[in-house]
Amino acid sequence: MKRAVIVNAKRSPIGKKNGILKDYAVHELASPLIRQLSIGFEGIVDDVLLGNVTGPGGNVARLSALEAGLSLSVPGVTLDRQCSAGLEAIRMACYLIQGGAGLCYLAGGVESTSTSLFPAKARFSPDFIGDPDMGKAAEYVAQKYGISKDAQDSYALLSYERSWEAYEHGHFEKEIIPFGHIVHDEEFFKKRNMTALLKRAKPIFTNENGTVTAANSCTINDGAAVVTVIEEELALSLGLLPVLRFIDSQVAGVHPNYPGAAPIPAIKKLLERNNLRIEEIDLMEINEAFASKIVGCSQELSIPYEKLNVSGGALTIGHPYGASGAVLVNRLFYEVQRKNNVKYVLAAIGSGGGIGVAVLFETMVN
């Protein structure tokens, strides 16, 4: 069986809805990443796979590839698994290489909520099952697992502090391709008193015993992230340094009322199949759509915070839906190059409709 490895990863700065990236159409967010990652791979790229959720329709991946100047022979396909879409695109690229369908793919996700034509979320589930807004679903997760507001606020503060520390140490610089004068995420334009914000923030999704607030939830954002997935022997023959080797992945479904809990069974099944324990995973990135989701996943899977989202995440920099799963892999790609004795890493995300995706990688640079 052929092995898929990741040899490069880039993302855009992440902007708030109607913020610094508001004037970029969705394909204009993805195309600079595709253009840079395709340098040196002319004639090798088999396809471009992009996740997208709220885009204008059409095939965003094909449009972005053409905008980036790729050969007309590179087709492009756009995926929608809601917030899991970017991670699903990377997962699919890895399986295409394993199956011998191709040798090199650019895969990731992109979202422009600022230019979206859709005023409300899509339907995730029939009403007779339950189709809550994501904020209310985060409350359901908190209730299901007995997660207090204090626990959510404590994690949100930890994430914020980690994000700012990583930013101030320059850890995000290699991740990002500047967009003109925009060289970092919008959240880092000005530091906030997060302790005070968390203390005074009130529940916004339910009036009865609510715990989820604007301060322990992510924002709505614009951004893109793409990685280069290539067959391992080809990568080595080209003199490339593989950083992450794809091992396996798992998708799981849960009740649509609890999408934040969907990574839990996905991660459990993935580790069981590969005879691994949580203790053997050195770094994990789980998308921080809501603090209740991360606290719940940590609690149910016994994941220590020391291994989880170690440079912060979406609670600080934001959640550009279809791109967020690819942002997780981008982060792991650079984290493992800064750390020693890292063998296994994992990215996971939950999405609307109650779907969890988890992807396991082996580190090749330690």
Rank of each mutant, 00 (worst) to 15 (best):
E208Y: 11
E208C: 06
N209W: 04
T211K: 12
T213G: 05
A214G: 11
A214L: 11
N216A: 04
I220T: 00
I220P: 00
N221M: 09
N221A: 10
G223R: 01
A224C: 12
V227F: 14
T228S: 13
V229E: 03
V229M: 05
I230C: 13
I230H: 08
E233S: 09
P242K: 05
P242Q: 06
L244V: 06
L244S: 04
R245L: 03
F246P: 06
I247D: 00
I247K: 06
D248W: 13
S249C: 14
S249E: 10
A252L: 09
A252C: 09
A252I: 07
N257T: 04
P259W: 00
P259N: 00
G260D: 14
A266T: 03
K268E: 14
K268R: 15
K269H: 15
K269T: 10
E272F: 07
R273I: 15
R273Q: 15
R273T: 13
N274S: 11
L276E: 12
L276K: 05
I278V: 12
E280G: 01
E280I: 02
E280H: 09
D282W: 06
L283K: 00
L283G: 03
M284R: 14
M284S: 14
M284Q: 13
E285C: 02
I286V: 12
I286Y: 01
A289I: 08
F290K: 11
A291Q: 02
I294L: 15
C297R: 07
Q299F: 07
